[in-house]
């Protein structure tokens, strides 16, 4: 994290409420809706506040519908907040001033800005002109970014002829040609195979290192977050639930730690329950969940009482915790 005092992204009490038409099912509901329309206010983002310093890479997590994309849309100026304040690179995003737009970019994994029927180079020429980058400089940047992204002749082929991974790389190149200071990335690796995901990840890390760009990244792939983001924001039902390190998030989401025991001989299940919650017991391998505050005492007791051949204490994998959260859509 850069030791700067002025944040490059600032959200203060940011909220967004959508007005959504409510219609009952069936013919009666349709007629009633036609005659007298009813609307419900749906709060997509509620009172979210955080600050991000220049050069930080921050993961933005949350289940579907939690408010991640709405927050990104407010921070990029695509939509106006219903309440609160946003400042990005010193600008109020929703005013969408040209100087603000030159400093940011938004990459959406499933959306494209490049022209589908033309080679990416044609779209890149337009981008270079729009952002006022001269020909020599744009050639230099395209070459440098293509090298970082391990791209070659793909830029000369019509976009529709490229694989999903190649298209994503071309989209990233287009989004970064003007060398934005702030990158908002919404699921940039969605649908990519493992190798392509890894390449995009290493590119983003490299880009951040080289240009000191600030990155706010949403992804359903925890590998993206664990590889890139020392800090994560977790949003749930429109509210910010966590702002801190992944380790701290793990502690909040999982108050217990997992103890894996390999015993010298089988042991009765009932007596194992005295030490903690038995997660599994397969032969002589036992997995126990033990509360963090009782861990030291419980481990000492286990070693004293049982014929332990091997013992390992670990946190449940963050993927599992977040995955469980995404599936359930609830926070305990």
């Amino acid at each position: 994290m850069a030791p700067s005092t002025s944040p490059i992204i600032l959200a203060e009490g940011l909220s967004k409420t959508y007005r959504v038409a409510a219609k009952d099912p069936g013919l009666a509901g349709t007629l009633r809706h036609f005659v007298q329309r009813r609307y419900n206010d749906v709060a997509a983002v509620r009172d979210v506040s955080f600050q991000i310093q220049p050069g930080e890479m921050v993961g933005f997590l949350g289940p579907n519908g939690a408010g991640k994309t709405t927050t990104l849309k407010m921070l990029t100026g695509l939509i106006h907040p219903s309440a609160g304040k946003a400042l990005v690179a010193g600008y109020t995003p929703h005013r969408r001033q040209a100087n603000f737009l030159r400093r940011i970019t938004l990459v959406m994994g499933q959306k494209q800005q490049l022209l589908w029927d033309l080679p990416a180079l044609d779209s890149l020429r337009v981008n270079a002109a729009v952002y006022g980058i001269d020909d020599a400089e744009s050639h230099r940047r395209i070459h440098a970014l293509a090298e970082m992204l391990d791209m070659g002749n793909e830029l000369k082929r019509p976009l529709r002829k490229l694989s999903l991974g190649q298209r994503m790389k071309a989209e990233l190149l287009a989004a970064l040609l003007h060398r934005p200071e702030v990158l908002f990335l919404d699921e940039p690796t969605l649908g990519l195979d493992v190798n392509a995901q890894a390449r995009v990840r290493s590119f983003l890390a490299d880009y951040n290192q080289r240009f000191g760009a600030t990155v706010l990244l949403t992804s359903h792939y925890m590998a993206d977050i664990t590889a890139l983001c020392p800090r994560v924001l977790l949003i749930h039902e429109g509210r910010l639930f966590h702002d801190g390190s992944l380790e701290a998030l793990t502690q909040r989401l999982a108050p217990c730690r997992e103890v894996r025991l390999e015993l010298a001989e089988p042991w009765p299940l009932d007596s194992l329950r005295a030490y903690g919650e038995v997660e599994s017991c397969e032969g002589m391998v036992v997995r126990l969940l033990i509360r963090r505050d009782a861990l030291t005492a419980a481990v000492s007791q286990l070693l004293a009482d049982l014929p332990v051949r091997d013992l390992e204490v670990r946190d449940p994998p963050i993927e599992e915790l977040i995955g469980r959260l995404f599936v359930q859509g609830t926070l305990s």
Partner: peptide, 27 residues
Amino acid sequence: RADGSPRVRPLRPLQHGFRVARALLAS
């Protein structure tokens, strides 16, 4: 810039407009 690359020299509005128009029309 911080990365050492030269800063893009701003074009005059007319020159910029002409360049954007040419690139847009070509694509």
